[in-house]
Design a binder for these strands. Structure first.
Length: 490
RNA sequence: CGGGGUGUAGCGCAGCCCGGUUAGCGCACCUGGUUUGGGACCAGGGGGUCGCAGGUUCGAAUCCUGCCACCCCGACCA
C-alpha cells in the first residue's frame, strides 16, 4: 500500500500534491517554483495542445515563434502593462561566466554586463507588437491572426505544481484588426473556443464572463474569462481572452492605411491558456483513489491486464488480446497491454486507477474458457463481464459515456455549490459554510469590491456577459446592474 | 519581506529535550524461492558528507554561533 493517497476530506491540498506526484504527472525541480513535467503528465498536455492547436487553426490562426528575451525598454512602453508585471520578472544582466580565480567554481563575469538588461518574457505582447509594427502597413495586411506555444516566467512568491509555477507552458494568441468591432468579435470567438475545449474535451463546465477593472489584464480594455469550480469549492480561472483596444498599437506605433485613405492604429486582442489547465483537470474530476481522466485526453484509454500463473497461460491470453487490441486500435482507441510479470494484477489495478485510465480490461484463464472478459470503468468503478464481440462493440460507447458522465458529475457538483444571496451577512455565511460560486449584487465600485475581498477573501470572478435583473448591492445598498459571480479563488 | 516550522538513504519518518561504541524504521530498490481474479510472502542484500561552516567536549545527528535551503500562514498572482 505504498501508494495510497490522503483523502480529499482530510487534506485537500495534500491530496492534490500527492496525486500529482504519485500519478507521475510532475515533480518539483531543484529550481524553486519550477516543475519537471514527467512523461505521463506531458502526454496529457500534448493531447490538450493538439486539440487546441487544431481549434486555433480551424478559426484561421497560424503559429509563429517570438524570442524568450525582451529588451527592458519594451516593457515600459505600455504603462499599465509594466505596472502589472514588473514585480515578477526575471532579468538577465550578463552574458558570460568565468572560472572563479579563488577556485569556487564558476562565477558571473563582471566584464560581460549587458548594455540593456533582458527580461525573460512574462507574456509576449511587447515583443510581438514590436514586430507587428513592421508587418502591418495597410488594411490589406489585416487581420493578423497569430498564436505561439511557449514557456513564460513569472516570479511568483508562492507556487503549486501546475496551478502556479514560476515557469509555465502556454499558448498566447495575438491578433491585430482594422476595426474595434472585429477585435471584440475575435476576443469573444476565442473565449468560445476555450469554452468548447474545456467543456467538451476536459469535461469541465465553465462560466463565461468579464473581469472587473481591478482583475483586468494589465494593458487590456476588457478581459473575458472562463471560470471553473473545483471540488474544494474554490474557483479556478481556466482561460482568458483580452480585448486590448488600441493600447499596444499606440504604445508600439502600429498604424495602417485604411481603405478610405486614412491612417489609424490597429485594434488588438490576446488570449491564452496554460499548463494550469492540467491543475484544473486533476482537481475537477479525481477522487481518493487517484486521477479520473476524460477519455478524450487520456493517454491510455483502455488498459488490458492479463491474469496468469505461467508463460503458457500468458501466451494464450496474448493471442486473444492481440486481436482485441487490433480491433480497438482500428477505431482510434489507444490501448495498452500490460503483460509485465513483475507486478501482480491487484497492483496493476490500483496503479491504473491512480493514473486515471478510463477503462480497464481484465482477462484470465476463466475468461478464455468462457469467451469473456471483465471491463471496469474508472469513473463509476463498475465492473461487468462481456463476451469478446460485445466488448469490442461496446467500448467506444462506454468511453463516450464516461466522457459525458464526468462532465455531468462536475456540473451537478457545481449546481449544488452555487448559491444566490442578497444580504452581506448571508454571503459571509454561505462562503464559510459551503464556499462555491455565489451570485450576488454589487454596486460596481472598486471600493466595495476591495472591502469584500478584505473581509471575506472572496473576489468577483467575473460579471456575466449579459446581466440578469438589476438590484441593490449587498454591501452598500446602492443600485446594481445585476448579479456578479463571487468565489474564493486559486 | 513579516510570523511559524522543517532539513537524517530515492520517498515518508524516528532518534535530538537528557551527548556515549557499528545512526534506526516503513515504503521503494537488488538476489533467490514460493506466489499471481484487488496494492503477495519468506530469506538474504545494497544504499547515509545526519543541510553547510565554525565552536564546546575525551566524544556531537544530539549542545552553542553563523549561514543556506525548503515548507506552511500573510502581502502578490494565470
Amino acid at each position: 500500500m505504498g501508494k495510497a493517497l490522503p483523502s480529499r476530506a482530510e487534506d485537500y491540498s495534500l491530496w492534490y500534491n500527492e496525486l500529482v506526484r504519485k500519478a507521475d504527472l510532475a515533480e518539483h525541480s531543484s529550481v524553486r517554483g519550477c516543475m519537471v513535467i514527467k512523461p505521463y503528465g506531458f502526454s496529457i498536455w500534448e493531447k490538450m495542445q493538439a486539440q487546441l492547436d487544431k481549434m486555433f487553426k480551424d478559426t484561421g490562426h497560424t503559429n509563429a515563434y517570438f524570442p524568450l528575451f525582451i529588451p527592458k525598454s519594451y516593457l515600459s512602453k505600455e504603462a499599465d502593462h509594466v505596472e502589472g508585471f514588473a514585480k515578477e520578472c526575471a532579468v538577465v544582466t550578463h552574458y558570460r561566466l568565468k572560472n572563479d580565480p579563488g577556485g569556487g567554481g564558476v562565477v558571473v563575469d563582471d566584464d560581460a554586463k549587458l548594455e540593456e538588461e533582458l527580461i525573460v518574457r512574462p507574456t509576449s505582447e511587447t515583443v510581438i507588437w514590436n514586430s507587428y509594427k513592421n508587418w502591418i502597413q495597410s488594411y490589406r495586411d489585416l487581420p493578423l491572426l497569430i498564436n505561439q506555444w511557449a514557456n513564460v516566467v513569472r516570479w511568483e512568491m508562492r507556487t503549486r505544481l501546475f496551478l502556479r509555477t514560476a515557469e509555465f507552458l502556454w499558448q498566447e494568441g495575438h491578433t491585430a484588426h482594422a476595426t474595434k468591432q472585429e477585435a471584440i468579435d475575435e476576443t469573444k470567438q476565442m473565449l468560445q473556443v476555450y469554452t468548447d475545449f474545456v467543456q467538451n474535451y476536459m469535461a469541465l463546465p465553465v462560466i463565461q464572463g468579464v473581469k472587473t477593472e481591478s482583475e483586468r489584464f494589465a494593458g487590456a480594455e476588457d478581459t473575458y474569462c472562463i471560470e471553473a469550480l473545483m471540488q474544494d469549492g474554490k474557483a479556478l480561472q481556466a482561460g482568458t481572452s483580452h480585448f486590448l483596444g488600441q493600447n499596444f498599437a499606440k504604445a508600439f506605433d502600429v498604424k495602417f492605411a485604411t481603405k478610405e485613405g486614412g491612417l489609424d492604429h490597429v485594434w488588438g486582442t490576446s488570449w491564452g491558456v496554460s499548463t494550469r489547465l492540467m491543475g484544473a483537470l486533476i482537481m475537477a474530476h479525481s477522487d481518493d483513489d487517484g486521477l479520473v481522466l476524460p477519455p478524450f485526453l487520456a493517454p491510455i484509454q483502455v488498459v488490458i491486464v492479463p491474469i496468469f500463473k505461467n508463460d503458457e497461460q500468458l501466451s494464450q491470453i496474448q493471442e486473444k488480446v492481440d486481436t482485441i487490441k487490433t480491433q480497438l486500435q482500428a477505431q482510434n482507441i489507444s490501448v495498452k497491454f500490460d503483460h509485465r510479470d513483475t507486478h501482480k494484477p491487484g497492483w496493476k489495478f490500483a496503479e491504473y486507477e491512480l493514473k486515471g485510465v478510463p477503462l480497464r480490461i481484465a482477462i484470465g484463464p476463466k475468461d478464455l474458457e468462457n469467451g469473456t472478459l471483465e471491463i471496469a470503468r474508472r469513473d463509476t468503478k463498475e465492473k461487468k463481464i462481456y463476451s469478446f464481440e460485445e466488448a469490442i462493440d461496446q467500448i467506444p460507447g462506454l468511453l463516450d459515456e464516461i466522457q459525458k458522465n464526468i462532465y455531468q458529475k462536475a456540473e451537478t457538483f457545481r449546481a449544488e455549490n452555487t448559491s444566490e444571496v442578497d444580504g452581506y451577512e448571508e454571503f459571509k455565511q454561505v462562503l464559510d459554510d459551503k464556499g462555491g460560486f455565489i451570485w450576488a449584487h454589487w454596486d460596481g465600485s472598486a471600493a466595495t469590491e476591495e472591502k469584500i475581498k478584505e473581509e471575506t477573501k472572496a473576489t468577483i470572478r467575473c460579471m456575466p456577459l449579459e446581466f440578469g435583473e438589476p438590484g441593490q448591492c449587498m454591501v452598500t445598498g446602492n443600485p446594481s446592474k445585476g448579479r456578479v459571480l463571487f468565489a474564493k479563488a486559486y
